[in-house]
């Protein structure tokens, strides 16, 4: 990248015959700078990132921005009252402040999203690295596993699994991880495959480095941007899965606040108490949308060649 800088320098030499003695040839601009440049030019991605950041802060500091605990039925006498200055999002049918429920819902949704994405990279990185590095039979086995996972529609399989296990926080994280690793695995595999023929890997091999060492020290660090992209894009998928399962009543169990669950409850009240349906719907839509836009932007910024995959 610095080559371009010096060439521009030369062009300007020709235009302005006597340049002042080298204003230090421009900073060395690394790939991170260019990624940031591309990212910040993408308005939707920046907006998504900001919204996501606010949501994460709200989720972390939930006890500070809300007046009660998420399951505290503190306002039973005012149950179902509409939004007002005192209750921003109204009160739900069981006398709980609805704003509190929504904020704690962000906590549940984001925790599941991040935990599941972490599970996905935990499964995806080693399998992708092994398949990419060894190729041949190892690659064949991993690709067949991926094929099975891509033939079965994730939501249906998740519903069946959740129905059998009766849902719950941990089960959902595991299910989402189980169906989220495929993308990460494919990205890592492609990157490792591209790098394993490079000279520095050959050199490491010649110096007697073991395959495990090469994968850990050379190949995985070079796959860091696809890993980040895979991680971020796995988050909204997991959040959607959680909301869908909770909506059907086989996800996170009450009284844990979950947006999917709240939408389901809100449906029964929507004609008379619209706030019960509107706020969880909006919260879920905004969060999933923001995370996806942020992830897409990150993908385009970190590796423009991945665009559209």
């Amino acid at each position: 990248m610095s080559v371009i800088g010096t060439e521009q320098g030369r062009v300007s030499d020709l235009v302005h015959p006597a340049p002042p003695p080298a204003p230090p040839a421009g900073r060395q601009r690394g790939p991170v700078w260019f990624a940031w440049k591309r990212f910040s030019a993408n308005k939707a991605a920046v907006a998504g990132g900001i919204v996501l950041g606010i949501l994460i802060l709200l989720a972390i500091f939930a006890p500070l921005v809300t007046k009660t605990g998420p399951n505290q039925q503190a306002f039973l006498t005012q149950a179902l009252s509409p939004p007002s200055a005192e209750f921003w999002f109204g009160v739900d049918d069981l006398g709980r402040d609805f704003f509190t429920r929504i904020v704690y819902g962000a906590r549940v949704s984001l925790t599941i999203g991040f935990a599941a994405a972490f599970c996905s990279i935990l499964i995806g990185i080693p399998l992708g690295a092994l398949a990419g590095y060894y190729g041949g039979k190892t690659d064949w086995v991993v690709m067949r596993i991926i094929e099975i996972f891509s033939v079965v529609p994730p939501l249906l399989a998740a519903m069946l699994l959740a129905a059998v296990t009766r849902g719950g926080f941990r089960t959902i994280v595991i299910i989402a991880g189980l169906f989220g690793w495929v993308q990460v695995c494919l990205l890592v595999r492609a990157q490792v495959k591209a790098y394993k023929e490079k000279e520095f890997v050959r050199a490491a091999e010649a110096l007697g480095a073991s395959p495990g060492y090469i994968i850990r020290k050379h190949l995985i660090p070079n796959a860091v941007s696809p890993i980040i992209v895979g991680f971020v894009l796995a988050i909204p998928l997991a959040m959607m899965l959680e909301a869908s399962l909770s909506f059907l009543g086989i996800g996170v169990m009450p009284p844990t606040p979950s947006w999917g669950q709240m939408i389901n409850t809100g449906m029964n009240f929507m004609y008379f108490y619209w706030h019960m349906a509107v706020f969880p719907t909006a919260a879920l839509a905004i969060t999933v949308l923001a995370t996806t836009l942020f992830g897409d932007g990150l993908r385009d910024a970190l590796d423009p060649t991945l665009k559209g995959t």
């Binding site: 959607m240 939408i263 809100g266 929507m270 719907t281 879920l284 839509a285 999933v288």
Partner: peptide, 12 residues
């Protein structure tokens, strides 16, 4: 956006 959210918006 999951389809049940789209449906909810349409209904609302």
């Amino acid at each position: 956006i999951p389809v049940f959210v789209t449906s909810m918006i349409l209904i609302l």
